[in-house]
């Protein structure tokens, strides 16, 4: 009984928060190449709406993912064009990508909703099938653990795979090393023959493509229900920006970070019922106001940021040239 609840709890944390991992891994690729992209929210929204509409139109999950990635990549291209080629301020450009992205999201959603039948996910058998949980022989049958960790849909495994892949790429490949050099000291990287604009364009675009897929997941996860008020992304993109710092710019740690943020998000809603179910162990949860759980990840992230700068710690992976544009003739 207790384990049942716990397994369900872990399961739902993963299912609800995996988009954060996509957003975070994408943003790490941006930031490690020296670009602080505050357009995550907008990029995810654009990926979500186009992925959903085209995916449902063709009833193909694969095409949906591809469209979402392409739409996200387009947002990244826009950001890269303005910050790398046109030397525009990164904060301003990122915020503008978010504004424009959300505008496009609402505009397209409203236009489709008001003029034609809003495509329903239930009418797309192959998407529903593709989005359903995958049964892995043996692993899924492990009591409790199988339910918590091994009975998820495709996107969960894809997200974790992408995180590990990006981690490996950054840590163990020459291209990854060069990209980190661009984020640390573009001048030095340039003098070693690294093509700075190309590296930035490439990693920003790839990162934003990953964010787009994360947005698509959010659309599917609420069955593509049309939302006129809060939108599908609902602040997840912003949380991803925080999560990057929490994960210390490490994609593998982002997996853990997503889970920790997820626990706090879940506690905001379920703390009361957990306290009720386990009065002896978790009774104290009742006394904590729910919003404390929501705020805690951000507070911890802020503390991590301050402490790591205070100790000038070698362990911090914050890119030195983050947020600074590179203009060769200023070198």
């Amino acid at each position: 009984m207790v384990l049942d609840i716990l397994a369900g709890f872990v399961y739902s944390i993963i299912v609800y928060n995996i988009p954060l991992l996509y957003g975070t891994v994408g943003e790490i690729l941006n930031e490690k190449a020296g670009s602080l992209n505050l357009g995550v929210e907008g990029t995810m929204a654009v990926g979500a709406i186009f992925g959903y509409l085209l995916g449902c139109r063709t009833d193909s999950l694969f095409l949906g993912i591809l469209t979402a990635a392409a739409a996200g990549a387009l947002c990244g291209l826009l950001f890269a064009f303005f910050t790398v080629t046109l030397q525009a301020n990164q904060n301003v450009t990122g915020l503008t990508v978010t504004t424009l992205g959300l505008g496009v999201y609402y505009f397209v959603a409203h236009a489709v909703h008001s003029r034609s039948n809003w495509p329903m996910m239930q009418d797309c058998p192959s998407i529903v099938k593709g989005f359903s949980e995958i049964h892995i022989p043996l692993l899924s049958d492990i009591p409790y653990i199988g339910k918590a960790f091994f009975s998820h849909n495709l996107f969960i495994y894809l997200g974790i795979f992408l995180a590990v892949l990006v981690w490996w790429y950054m840590k163990h490949t020459t291209a990854g090393l060069r990209m980190r050099a661009v984020g640390e000291n573009p001048g030095a990287a340039d003098s070693c023959g690294v093509n700075i604009p190309r590296s930035k364009y490439l990693h920003i675009t790839a990162g934003c493509a990953i964010m787009g897929v994360g947005g698509y997941y959010m659309a599917l996860h609420i069955n593509g229900e049309y939302l006129a008020s809060s939108g599908w992304i609902n602040g997840y993109g912003w949380i991803a920006v925080a999560l990057v710092i929490f994960a210390n710019w490490n994609p593998a740690r982002a997996i853990l970070g997503t889970f920790v943020f997820g626990i706090f998000k879940a506690l905001e809603v379920y703390a009361g019922s957990i306290a009720f179910a386990f009065p002896a162990l978790f009774g104290w949860l009742k006394a904590v106001p729910p919003k404390v759980f929501t705020a805690l990840p951000f507070l911890i992230t802020a503390l991590v940021l301050v402490l790591s700068s205070a100790r000038r710690s070698k362990k911090s992976n914050q890119p030195a040239a983050i947020g600074v544009n590179y203009y060769r003739e200023d070198r």
């Binding site: 990508v97 505008g103 496009v104």
Partner: peptide, 11 residues
């Protein structure tokens, strides 16, 4: 047209 059309114009 959605009221958030201003977001597109602004962007």
């Amino acid at each position: 047209v959605d009221s958030r059309f201003s977001d597109i114009l602004q962007g």
